[in-house]
């Protein structure tokens, strides 16, 4: 609204001068705030916006020694190269599927955990479970993947050990492409489910107890209460979290995939960001890597906007 008014004002020449004056005054009045904001601004300009302009090298034949401006324009060469390469579909599929599995299996877990915790009345037990289940969230990806690799080793890992006890053949999980996604998703749930439940627990405590009492008076069973009171109560939180998760489908974490993958599992493990790292940084194809970067960015923007739009239509909850 404000901006609309401002633009109407600007169309009137007489008021333009006045608005400039008030603007300068406002600037002067907020100079200390602006000073406080300055480091932040510098950071965002340097490390967030400058790179966006750097995306221009994806349309050039970037040569490190010549610099951005002296490099030749090549138009869409690298995009064409990417879309036509066999890597494209594979990367898209891998990134997308990994992200989707992560949401499909990773999203419900914190909700379930929170609902269960909510049923627990022994405060001490509840606190204990919470404390323990939050811990993995603070453990680095390097440690988590290191643990996964060690525990899944078919010769010495504890999983192989249990397999043997059960009379099964040990499986070499880490070099089998079909196991990559399950391993990744399970590790992710292990890491973040506990922490993710915090938000729902908070939402649960915010539900008005009178709603439950009313339901009880109406003779609703615990199960019915769950569906008619509890779930609707945490629905907004769920929608927001789901949106955020969907927004990250394409933008799935680089670190863990990078650490967990190996050439034997590229077939299912290689995603956009690991590809960019390999192609762009380790092989020095900066322009090509950047083209993939930009493509990833655009797709993930589309994802989040769509998710947000759909959600606003369907449930009245949205990120913006």
């Amino acid at each position: 609204m404000e901006s609309a008014r401002a633009s109407t004002e600007r169309t009137v020449p007489l008021t333009a001068a006045r608005s400039r004056a008030t603007f300068l005054k406002r600037l002067g009045r907020s100079k200390y705030l602006l000073i406080l904001f300055l480091p932040c601004l510098v950071y965002y300009v340097l490390f967030k916006y400058l790179p966006m302009f750097g995306l221009v090298i994806s349309f050039k034949d970037y040569n490190l020694f010549r610099g951005v401006w002296a490099s030749n324009w090549v138009g869409l060469k690298y995009y064409r190269m990417f879309f036509e390469s066999p890597d494209f579909l594979k990367l898209f599929r891998n990134t997308f599927l990994l992200g989707v599995y992560n949401v499909v299996f990773g999203f419900p877990m914190p909700v379930v955990l929170a609902l269960c915790l909510n049923e627990v009345r022994q405060a001490l037990f509840k606190r204990f479970v919470q404390t323990v289940s939050y811990v993995p969230h603070f453990i680095s990806n390097v440690v988590v993947v290191g643990m996964v690799v060690m525990l899944l080793s078919p010769t010495t890992g504890v999983v192989a050990h249990f397999f043997k006890l059960l009379g099964w053949q040990p499986v070499n999980f880490l070099v089998q492409p079909e196991w990559f996604r399950p391993i990744y998703v399970i590790a992710d749930i292990w890491q973040h489910a506990g922490w993710g439940s915090i938000i729902y627990l908070a939402a649960l405590t915010a539900i008005d107890p009178q709603l439950y009492e009313a339901a009880e008076i109406d003779g609703a069973s615990r199960w019915k209460q769950l569906w008619n009171v509890t779930i609707p109560g945490i629905m907004p939180a769920m929608v927001i979290m789901l949106l955020l998760n969907i927004g990250h489908i394409i933008d799935i974490g680089f670190e863990k995939v990078f650490l967990l993958m190996n050439p034997a599992t590229y077939e299912t493990a290689d995603i956009f960001s690991t590809f960019v790292y390999r192609m762009g940084l380790t092989l020095g194809n900066y322009s090509y890597g950047t083209a993939v970067d930009l493509f990833t960015g655009v797709v993930s923007l589309i994802f989040i906007c769509t998710a947000n739009y759909v959600s606003r239509k369907v449930s009245d909850t949205s990120l913006w």
């Binding site: 603007f23 916006y49 790179p51 302009f53 750097g54 960001s273 960019v276 900066y286 990833t296 655009v298």
Partner: peptide, 27 residues
């Protein structure tokens, strides 16, 4: 604060779109 809206928008936008690994590396 002057530009408050602009700055806020500018910051929130980076949550949804960014320059990517290589341009950032080059910077």
């Amino acid at each position: 604060m002057a530009f408050n809206k602009t700055f806020t928008l500018m910051i929130v936008f980076t949550m949804f779109f960014n320059g990517g690994m290589i341009p950032t590396f080059l910077v």
